[in-house]
Simulated scan of single mutants.
Amino acid sequence: MVSMSYAPAGGADAPAGEDPAGTRAARRGVPGTPPPRAEAVPGVGQIAGLRPRADVELLDALDRHTRRTVAAWLLERPSTATRQACLQTLAGFLRWLQATEPHVGLLAATGAHLDAYCEQARIGALTVGVRNPGRALSGATVARKHRALSSFYWFAWSIGAIRQGDGGSAPAGEPQPLAITRDERRLLRLGASRLAADGRVAEAVAVALIEATGASVATLAGLTSEDLHAVGHGSNNPLVLVTMRDDRGDVVTFPVPTWVHPWLKALSSTRAAGDLLIKQGDGQPVSAGWLTAALRDAGSAGGIPASRAKLLHPRKLRAGTATAPA
């Protein structure tokens, strides 16, 4: 059996600004759901206390959608000092990205870009985006950068600012994508927690991952326990990552929301190495019909009105959210 090292969220190695073990959700009386996201502001320059000015101006020069996503993420950091550190990390990564792949926007970067940047930082190969070009950074510093950048991309995906490519148009005759609202996403996450409480852990994990990452049915069907990676073994709160292939075949990495960790631990503990992570009740790989039923059951369990829940579909959910920053 494969068993990953999971632990309750909220330890010293938790991504900066993330909610420890859903404590804010618990205070709201909504178990198993992450905290609400900050509303976007016009730009980074409107957030007090950030410097140097060059970093602020670099991020404010991005397109309006990206700029507001960055500002919303920074506002959710718990202190000015944390915002400052996150600003510098993101600005450094953006300078490197613009120098190495100028055609790739900040929200179009993949886990492969993040990994390449951190590896170059570790071996001292960075010539832009760092205070001392050519100087290797310590493992602890590189890990902090990785956690901060992972936190940014998880935030952006969780609010619908970026979604995995759809990989083609909808089949003829299929209704147009459903514009799912932020409140409906919250209810869908709540419904997933209720499926897990009823013992339907595979369905809960599938719903949580497609909601958090926008993964295709084929991508979810191909996941194995070996695609889960706990960063920070031995810490109170390892960051759990899932690696997938996007529609172009590139490997992308996503942080798994902390509230999903217990379900993944339970599911992966029953899988042999290389075995499919998510299976249907009959042991077959995930299908579109099975995932559609899981989404609709989770929507209904979470309180989405029946007229809306019955419209939930993997392809439609991946289209994004009506309340993403504009």
Results as ranks from 00 to 15, higher is better:
94 L>C: 09
61 A>P: 04
46 Q>N: 12
16 A>G: 12
132 N>K: 14
199 G>Q: 06
164 Q>P: 03
43 G>V: 02
317 L>S: 02
227 D>H: 13
135 R>M: 13
87 L>N: 00
207 V>G: 04
42 P>W: 01
33 T>G: 02
48 A>K: 03
81 A>E: 13
164 Q>V: 10
102 P>L: 06
263 W>E: 09
121 A>F: 02
273 A>I: 09
180 I>P: 08
305 P>A: 08
17 G>A: 04
134 G>V: 10
11 G>Q: 09
125 A>S: 12
228 L>Y: 07
107 L>D: 04
272 A>F: 08
149 L>A: 01
280 Q>F: 07
43 G>D: 06
222 G>R: 10
54 A>Y: 00
33 T>E: 11
175 P>L: 08
135 R>G: 08
137 L>C: 13
118 C>D: 06
159 I>W: 03
295 L>E: 04
278 I>C: 00
178 L>Q: 09
209 L>A: 05
171 P>W: 07
107 L>R: 06
44 V>Y: 00
300 S>Q: 14
324 A>E: 11
64 R>C: 09
234 G>P: 07
64 R>P: 07
112 A>L: 11
248 R>Y: 12
206 A>D: 05
37 R>K: 11
291 L>C: 03
264 L>T: 03
322 A>V: 10
196 A>R: 08
90 L>T: 03
138 S>T: 15
320 G>A: 07
208 A>S: 13
57 E>Y: 04
48 A>N: 09
108 A>W: 05
165 G>V: 05
211 E>V: 11
88 Q>S: 15
319 A>D: 06
304 I>Y: 01
3 S>T: 14
111 G>E: 03
90 L>M: 06
105 G>R: 11
157 W>C: 15
188 L>H: 01
229 H>Q: 14
189 R>N: 11
191 G>T: 06
233 H>M: 15
232 G>L: 04
94 L>A: 10
74 L>K: 02
109 A>D: 06
85 A>E: 12
183 D>Y: 12
266 A>V: 07
243 T>Y: 11
9 A>P: 11
128 V>M: 09
55 D>C: 08
149 L>C: 10
123 I>C: 07
256 V>C: 01
31 P>F: 05
2 V>F: 14
65 H>K: 05
323 T>Q: 15
160 G>F: 02
20 P>W: 06
259 W>E: 11
306 A>P: 02
150 S>M: 14
150 S>R: 15
184 E>P: 00
110 T>C: 04
191 G>F: 12
278 I>F: 02
199 G>K: 08
249 G>Q: 11
174 E>N: 09
